[in-house]
Simulated assay, not measured.
Amino acid sequence: MENITALGGDVYEIDTKMAGYSGITAGYLILSDRPCLVETGTSTSAPVVRDALASLGVGPDDLATVVVTHIHLDHAGGVGDIAKAFPSAQVVVHEKGARHLADPSRLMSSARMVWGDSLDTLFGEMTPTEAERIVALGDTGAIDLGNGRTLSSHYSPGHAKHHVGLIDSATGDLYVGDAAGVYLPQTGDLRPATPPPDFDLQTALGSIALFEALGPQRLLFSHYGPVEAVKETLERSAEELRIWVDLTRQAHAEGMDLDHAVAMVRDRTKERYAALTSEDPGVAEQFELLSGAPSNVAGILHWLDRVSP
């Protein structure tokens, strides 16, 4: 299938075709003795993901584990649907996210407040997962991939308080979720993801430092794809966070409202991203959908109001 890319080490990237776009959100299948899906994508993407797994030979009873880096709808919105389609799979999530997978009602109502009517086209509705199938992780944990291969999870908040990074013992691949920002393979751009309400600068920088300390061989971004230049990318990720925070802090100090702060930060950062000067307007649109300036600036302002009202 054209939306599956073999990455080596029995790892397959699946384009979940979020909201019909290509290259927005990736799920990853580790086709080990105990097959594991990392990230489900949205609920509207669940059929795409199920078909991709089937084409890789993973039938309804073959998937051992579904693990999500965090419970935001572009990463975990499809968990309930995928759990139904693969009834033998355990569902693994950080303990701070577990109850929201069992009962998504609060998660869905807060998402609807943020996204309004575009929620349905972008994400669809998360369906509940039976509580007895959910495995809640503490700050570290290990997922058995079979044959002595493990996927170790490491608590990495800052983007979200229920976020984990996952490292594969066989490949050294680190699944970074959103904790290292959003990567655009077409242009090599990297930009932070700092939505409300959980963003916290020191915590986010701490998670990036933890990722560096894990010594990964490769970073696998949920948005989007594999990156080999680990050290440079993580350094860039920390630098981007600092730049967005410094600019937003300046807007905050000048008493700007959200719209003016967004316009200022967007203007002062646009030179940093080839996507925004690209001939192809689709690339810029993709970037804004993934790491929109309004959501980033709102998350940083929310944090600033907590730490320096």
Results as ranks from 00 to 15, higher is better:
residue 217 Q to V: 00
residue 215 G to L: 01
residue 125 E to M: 13
residue 265 V to I: 06
residue 181 G to A: 00
residue 242 R to K: 15
residue 131 A to N: 10
residue 119 L to E: 01
residue 44 T to D: 01
residue 118 S to R: 14
residue 29 L to N: 04
residue 214 L to K: 03
residue 108 M to Y: 12
residue 71 I to N: 11
residue 116 G to E: 06
residue 162 H to F: 14
residue 164 V to G: 08
residue 218 R to G: 01
residue 186 Q to E: 15
residue 266 R to L: 07
residue 134 I to Q: 03
residue 151 L to S: 01
residue 115 W to H: 15
residue 183 Y to H: 14
residue 277 T to F: 10
residue 30 I to A: 13
residue 103 D to N: 14
residue 285 E to W: 05
residue 253 A to N: 08
residue 215 G to D: 11
residue 81 D to M: 08
residue 305 D to M: 05
residue 67 V to W: 11
residue 244 W to T: 03
residue 175 Y to E: 08
residue 284 A to Q: 04
residue 260 H to S: 11
residue 130 E to D: 12
residue 296 N to D: 12
residue 291 S to N: 08
residue 286 Q to P: 00
residue 266 R to K: 13
residue 117 D to N: 14
residue 145 L to R: 06
residue 46 A to K: 00
residue 185 P to C: 00
residue 12 Y to F: 15
residue 189 D to S: 00
residue 253 A to F: 03
residue 299 G to A: 09
residue 281 P to V: 08
residue 215 G to H: 10
residue 269 T to F: 03
residue 261 A to Y: 04
residue 100 H to V: 06
residue 206 G to E: 12
residue 156 S to A: 15
residue 261 A to C: 03
residue 302 H to M: 10
residue 269 T to I: 09
residue 116 G to Y: 09
residue 106 R to W: 06
residue 93 V to P: 05
residue 281 P to S: 05
residue 299 G to Q: 09
residue 224 Y to N: 13
residue 172 G to N: 02
residue 94 H to Q: 12
residue 213 A to W: 01
residue 13 E to N: 13
residue 94 H to W: 09
residue 193 A to R: 15
residue 202 Q to Y: 10
residue 220 L to D: 02
residue 231 K to A: 13
residue 223 H to K: 02
residue 21 Y to I: 06
residue 216 P to E: 04
residue 141 G to Q: 05
residue 41 G to L: 00
residue 159 H to Y: 14
residue 159 H to Q: 10
residue 155 Y to W: 13
residue 75 H to E: 15
residue 105 S to Q: 13
residue 305 D to V: 09
residue 298 A to Y: 02
residue 246 D to C: 08
residue 211 F to Q: 14
residue 47 P to Q: 08
residue 220 L to N: 04
residue 294 P to W: 11
residue 43 S to C: 08
residue 262 V to S: 04
residue 45 S to R: 01
residue 271 E to M: 06
residue 155 Y to A: 09
residue 148 G to E: 01
residue 284 A to N: 04
residue 166 L to E: 03
residue 276 L to E: 12
residue 84 K to G: 14
residue 32 S to W: 05
residue 134 I to A: 07
residue 265 V to W: 07
residue 26 A to F: 08
residue 114 V to M: 11
residue 220 L to Q: 07
